[in-house]
């Protein structure tokens, strides 16, 4: 007998506070005042926390959305300084605010219509008249150095090797060396924005070293808001 009773489901409690005999309950009220105050206190605390946490978070994340490569053209010397057969090192300012750390070495040579195939991105356009190669290794960002005799770029950190085009010739790098925009203006060579290239020298937005740009791998390394 007792077992039978316990198996029966207990009668559903009414959701109206008035049915529970609460003093001063309103008609149709379902939320007790204690519950309402608890919720109100939690909501007030949540709003107060969000009021300082969200601006602080935005403050910390904001630089990620700032354009890292402002449109600037830097003079690197007269056109007569550069030829198509060898690279000439030049120093440019990538970030004027940080002294030595904001300077970067680049290698500049004239575009050679015979040996340089135009990039697939240049279809129907004139190719960039100067090949400006970044010294930032596409493996982990160490500075590469150009050697004229083998016509290779060599990275001292993990042995990455690039050919005269800046394409990977050996070692761990995942894509060719980055390049910079270049133009000739009044007999001077000017260097502009950085861009990344894949193994066909197709142009991409500037990527971090170690980010692939070929095959299926490229979809694992999306473009960033800062570039």
């Amino acid at each position: 007998m007792a077992d039978k009773q316990s198996k029966q489901t207990p009668p559903r409690k009414s959701r109206y506070t008035a049915d529970h005999g609460m003093a001063g309950a309103f008609e149709g009220e379902t939320v007790t005042r204690r519950r309402f105050m608890t919720g109100g206190a939690l909501a007030a605390g949540g709003i107060a926390s969000a009021a300082f946490a969200l601006p602080a978070l935005g403050f910390a994340l904001a630089p990620m959305f700032k354009d890292a490569t402002p449109d600037r053209w830097q003079d690197v010397g007269p056109e007569s300084d550069f030829n198509p057969t060898t690279y000439v090192p030049r120093v440019v300012n990538t970030d004027p605010g940080v002294g030595e750390a904001g300077k970067a070495t680049i290698y500049v040579r004239k575009f050679d219509p015979e040996s340089d195939k135009p990039s697939p991105s240049d279809q129907g356009k004139d190719p960039i008249p100067y090949v400006v190669v970044s010294t930032r290794c596409a493996h982990l960002g160490c500075p590469v150095r150009y050697y004229q005799a083998p016509k290779r770029f060599v990275c001292p950190c993990h042995g990455g090797i690039y050919d005269f085009q800046g394409k990977v010739a050996g070692g761990p790098p995942v894509r060719p060396l980055d390049r910079f925009d270049a133009r000739a203006s009044n007999g001077r060579v000017e260097v502009g924005e950085r861009f990344s290239v894949n193994s066909e020298l197709r142009r991409f937005s500037p990527r971090d070293p170690s980010n692939h740009l070929d095959g299926l791998w490229q979809y694992l390394y999306p473009s960033r808001p800062s570039t």
Partner: peptide, 19 residues
Amino acid sequence: PLIGPFLADFLRGGGEFSA
């Protein structure tokens, strides 16, 4: 993969090493 580029931007505070 996927989060790397954003993680690097967060650590550097931007697309390039800066102040």
